[in-house]
Design a binder for these strands. Sequence first.
DNA 1: TCACCTTTGAAGAAC
DNA 2: GTTCTTCAAAGGTGA
Length: 550
Amino acid sequence: MPQLNGGGGDDLGANDEMISFKDEGEQEEKISENVSAERDLDDVKSSLVNESENNSSSSDSEQAERRPQTRPDSESYEKTRDYFSEALRRQQDGGFFKSPHYPGYPFLMIPDLTNPYLSNGSLSPSARTYLQMKWPLLDVPGSAGLKDSRSPTPGHLSNKVPVVQHAHHVHPLTPLITYSNEHFSPGTPPSHLSPEILDPKTGIPRTPHPSELSPYYPLSPGAVGSIAHPLSWLMPQQGQHMYSIPPGGFRHPYPALAMNPSMSSLVSSRFSPHMVTPPPHSLHQTGIPHPAIVSPAIKQEPSGDISPSMHAKSPVPAKKEEDKKPHIKKPLNAFMLYMKEMRAKVVAECTLKESAAINQILGRRWHSLSREEQAKYYELARKERQLHSQLYPGWSARDNYGKRKKRKRENKPDSKPEDFSIRSKKQCVQYLPSEKMCDSPASSHGSMLDSPATPSAALASPAAPAATHSEQAQPLSLTTKPEGRMQHHFSIPGKASGQSNTPILTRPIPFTSLHPSMLSPPSPFHQAALHSHHALFQSQPLSLVTKPTE
DNA sequence: TCACCTTTGAAGAAC
DNA sequence: GTTCTTCAAAGGTGA
């Protein structure tokens, strides 16, 4: 049984742990959460700061020494505290959006959804933002050509614009709020856009009350035009759209209606009519389709990426057919949403550029998120899926299979566990530094290697059960579904898997993600699991361990 | 030029 | 029912 000692110098995860345990008491929850969250943030910030410092000074020891002391970002720290204070205050005020005003979730704090519509009948920024955010799936085909990374099209048209460019001038949330509100022409939202509610006054379908919809996008009314102003940081940074948008184009709140003719016809022919009902108004001037739709021809699909079957028969026709089919992207999951939001922040705070490294950090941060925080994303993701399923009833994740080039990993049959381990090791080596630099030790691999297959692992994933196509609001319910992925990456010791001798993860599930209240309700078993993991976690400070395969 | 890397979660296929 | 695979975003990296 792992010991519960503090874990020594490296207190990584310690805070996480505290969070989870403190949360055991409902009463304490609020307070402790704020405190722990604050600490967590502080911790993260410190880590990040250290990382920055580390850039100039590569000495780990120095880092270690500095960590507890330096707090160059005391100012931001104070801000953070202010956020929490504000959050607390709002919580007391009640309301759905009493989420802590974590810097990372400012978009959650611009409530005012009381009246989603402006006096002129147009959607209020809140609702609008929500709607817009509802379309992160849109991958503009019109600009499809623009998006295609392979296309010769200038990068600025691609959604793969270096985030780093203005990393320091862009608010971390930028990624999530990447829809320009400008050029928005208020109109009647598509009837298919559900959940929909008709505004009694305007008769315009509006987005449901925040309580019904994702609360993550609301922006204060004044934010509409002012978004670029006080909330300028909310604006997408140059070229950084959740989904590519054609130059000068803007993401319409109802992108689905803005599909270009061809797209529209395709979709309508593919999906149930009511889902693609033409806009009652001439909304679309940009021809921007739903973000989830991407012209297959342009996006991602190398010429030969057509489904094998089609390919085999008649490449050319098949391709044509394929071209016609809009590529409907998968709805983003909670983590993806989180990533989008936080990436810029991480990039800004760290000097990291490699997405792989950034993602490791993000992965770790994700785990360190409090239950509430994660819940928001799960909920958001759930709604995302819901909307997606409503928009594309016939869509299946399977549709996108084969859209990408298969990974080398595919040669798995050939590659033996050892190979994999070795490779993993390399990867660790490659990215660990970055991870270390910016976010503290807990390597993502750590999280990857976490024992997710354990009950706690499952717990860690509220796994927004929200069934995609058949939405059963069962948010954050406990799922015991093992994370197969883990197995395919690294098997857990003792667990039969193709890649068995793998690195052993030293870092168990982040406790914040095991927040008791995430469980519904926390069974003794879960509690035990939490404690167990917690102990383990503490006893094994974040060392990235790539188990020597030999 | 483009696959890879990395992360988590969801979905679907395979067993 | 469990396990495995693929894809979603992102952008630097290396072949």
